[in-house]
């Protein structure tokens, strides 16, 4: 049954408050916990970047917020996902009945996916695909919805929007399709936009344009944005705050400047070393240092800190004793590492 925990959000400006989110999948091999004990808040106009390697649980987290993960019993969601809707009411998405959840999706919170090539339905015109959610959420006629869709296409920078309404997805370039996806997500002016690696499939110049577009739209609508990526260069450009995930857990969370200037978690430092910096691309020719090893098997996690086996600062007896807690190292900067002060040479 639904929990009776208070659905209270302290701050009027908060759009999303995720508390102890857990997501696990049931497979023939056993129960796989994909996301464990994830908590974060996001305010109006703020951009939170979710960073991690593939398999870290960042995409599952984003799908889980809108409950786009497989249905029970194949997947179970625990914890609370409090969302303040357009009308100001707060609802717990984790326990919302499916039909009410449908009202939330596309209206209060919308999503942009990674693959613009496959995320649009190939047999329907893009105008109709954008108009679809307008018609259902705002009860507009097809014609009125299409008018609004044309405005949206104009908004996301597609030239000659009236004509493009009648285009099929295959007639558009990758960048154009991603603009269509964004127009579709923005159709009902959501409070929250979840963008799951929206630029990964695009080439670099288009990437920059899409990021620019997202930033402009956010300034205009003051929507909150969760931006999932494994590209730290992109994070530096767009995010206000960063949440780093590793094997289903949050391992570090901070505002973007402190995180880049002084990352505390060894994993974050490894990530920063392994990614070419966009702003210095081609200048510094230092070789990229990849993190050795791979993400642990979620069915057989290592004891203690799950990053331990790949960590340069691993201390037997300490790191593999218990899962480290998420510790408030400094105000607004949390880290899940028992040795962060020893490893960074800073006082706790």
């Amino acid at each position: 049954m639904t929990q009776t925990a208070p659905r209270v959000m302290q701050d009027e400006e908060d759009v999303l408050d995720v508390r102890n989110l857990g997501i696990s999948f049931r497979t023939p091999a056993g129960e796989i916990p994909a996301v464990r004990d994830v908590s974060f808040r996001i305010r109006r106009g703020e951009t939170l970047a979710l960073v991690g390697e593939s398999g870290s649980g960042k995409s599952v987290t984003s799908l889980g917020i809108l409950r786009l993960t497989p249905k029970p019993p194949f997947c179970s969601i625990t914890g609370q996902v409090l969302l303040r809707g357009r009308d100001g009411t707060v609802r717990d998405l984790a326990s919302l009945p499916e039909d009410e959840m449908r009202d939330v999706r596309g209206r209060d919170a919308a999503m942009v996916f990674q693959e613009p090539m496959t995320s649009l339905n190939p047999v329907h015109r893009v105008g109709d695909q954008i108009a679809e959610s307008i018609r259902f959420h705002e009860g507009l006629s097809r014609r009125a919805a299409l008018d609004k869709a044309a405005g949206l296409l104009d908004l996301v920078g597609i030239p000659d929007p009236r004509r493009r309404l009648g285009a099929y997805p295959h007639e558009l370039s990758g960048g154009m399709r991603q603009r269509v996806m964004i127009a579709m997500a923005l159709a009902c002016e959501p409070r929250l936009l979840i963008a799951d690696e929206p630029t990964t499939a695009l080439d670099v110049t288009i990437q920059a344009q899409i990021l620019d577009l997202l930033r402009r739209l956010q300034e205009r609508t003051r929507m909150a944005v969760i931006f999932i990526t494994h590209n730290l260069g992109v994070v530096a450009e767009i995010a206000d705050r960063v949440m780093v995930m590793y094997s289903g857990r949050v391992v570090e969370q901070a505002a973007v400047r402190p995180l880049f200037r002084s990352p505390l978690m060894p994993y974050t430092r490894g990530l920063l070393r392994s990614v070419p910096r966009l702003d210095f691309a081609g200048l510094g020719r230092e070789p990229l240092a990849a993190i050795p090893g791979t993400v642990p098997d979620p069915l057989e996690p290592p004891p203690g800190c799950s990053f331990g086996p790949r960590c340069g600062g691993f201390l037997p007896g300490t790191c593999d004793a218990a899962v480290p807690p998420l510790e408030e190292a400094r105000p607004g900067h949390q880290v899940r590492c028992v040795r962060w002060s020893a490893l960074t040479g800073e006082a706790a």
């Binding site: 809108l66 786009l68 959840m101 449908r102 009202d103 939330v104 999706r105 596309g106 209206r107 919308a110 999503m111 996916f113 693959e115 496959t118 995320s119 649009l120 339905n121 190939p122 047999v123 329907h124 679809e132 959610s133 259902f136 959420h137 996806m181 579709m184 997500a185």
Partner: peptide, 26 residues
């Protein structure tokens, strides 16, 4: 299992419409 079905779901349109308009049509 196609991505565009997930997209349709993320738009919050009724399951019936997803099934007929998006899935069966394809």
């Amino acid at each position: 299992h196609q991505d565009y079905i997930r997209t349709a779901r993320s738009k919050g349109i009724p399951e019936r419409r997803i099934l007929i308009h998006h899935a069966v049509r394809n």
